[in-house]
Simulated assay, not measured.
Amino acid sequence: MGGLFVAIGDSFTEGVGDWDTRHPNGVRGWADRVAKQLSKVDPDTRYANLAIRSRRLAGVVEGQIEPALAMDPDLVSFYAGGNDLLEVRKDLGPVLATYTRAVERLATSGARVLLFTGFDIPLHPVLEPFKRRNWAFNDHVRSLARRYPESVTLVDYWTWDAYRDRRMWDIDKLHMNRAGHRYMAIQVLNILGVRHQLEFEPFGPSERVGPIQSVSRDVEWLRQWVLPMFGRRIRGITLGDELQPKWPEPILPADGLKKMYRTRRRLLAAD
């Protein structure tokens, strides 16, 4: 019988940036891709994804960990905390303490646990203060992975040079695009030692951008993404407030993720 893979977290795991209206919440993402490849190895593999964009660490811990463990998973992926790092006024100490308790709970559950560092994204100077918080968070993730070598596998995303290419990122510069999610799925499968059929085509030489065009792009990025993001935080709303998890109950990816989503939409429309 196949095992159960449960993915928990925020936009990174939900799949934001890998836009596809044929999938729940309009995104595909690396976790769906990993689940599909696991099902090619064993068609009995089951998969659930509880991640929702914009969730802070406390929300993931309180709303996703126990429901995930109640499914008795064999593999759990856990990535959360990135949204907390963006709140520069929030003390990092309690965030790391909450993350530690979450990892302790997962690592002692009997499941294999995937932890992720956060990538050291080349940031515009307006967001530069967040980099040091990201470095401290990553060091903490690595130390916890070392603490539980029998149950925790580290995906050290921070070290992968491929993501230094801006063509791996969505227009908001904070989320991986389709290429980035595909590459992540390949790396996760390789780390797990799972044979798969995914391939990544290297990019050609990047285009050269002049200083005037670069400034214009930065201004537009600030207008379209950065200012609205901080505006939502001030108002206490998030992009995930009206969303439900993509796959809240275990499914069989071998049956086809897009096919299952079409069936779900037909059933909802019939109601």
Rank of each mutant, 00 (worst) to 15 (best):
A269C: 12
K90L: 15
W221Q: 00
N134W: 12
P228Q: 05
S54H: 02
I171K: 14
P245R: 02
V6D: 01
I212K: 08
A48K: 00
K131T: 15
H196L: 07
R233V: 01
W160F: 10
A80V: 14
D42L: 08
R195H: 12
P129L: 07
L267Q: 14
P129T: 09
R112H: 07
L154Y: 06
V215W: 12
M176K: 08
E249C: 01
R167E: 03
A51Y: 03
D172Y: 08
T153W: 07
N49E: 02
K173C: 10
Y99I: 05
G59T: 12
S77F: 03
V27A: 01
P73D: 00
L189M: 05
W30N: 00
H196M: 05
I237S: 08
V6K: 01
A179M: 12
F119M: 02
Y183F: 14
T159E: 13
S151L: 01
R133P: 10
K40M: 08
V209K: 05
I237D: 03
L252S: 13
D18L: 07
L243E: 08
P205F: 08
A31C: 09
L4F: 03
L50Q: 01
H140E: 13
H175E: 10
E62M: 08
P73V: 00
D18M: 07
A68D: 03
R46H: 01
K90H: 14
H140R: 13
L127I: 02
G3T: 04
L174N: 06
D241I: 08
E201A: 14
V41F: 09
I121T: 01
F78G: 00
Q197M: 07
V88M: 14
N134P: 05
V88R: 14
G26R: 00
A185V: 04
R89T: 13
L115V: 01
F130K: 12
E242C: 08
F5S: 00
R33W: 11
G180R: 03
Q187D: 06
R264H: 15
D32N: 10
K36F: 12
G240T: 09
Q224D: 13
K40S: 02
H196D: 05
N83M: 09
N83S: 07
N177A: 05
N134C: 13
A58K: 12
V194H: 05
Q37C: 00
L192Q: 07
G180L: 03
G81C: 04
D10M: 10
R146C: 11
P248H: 08
K36M: 13
R235Y: 06
D120W: 09
G82C: 09
G193V: 04
F200E: 01
H196K: 07
K131S: 15
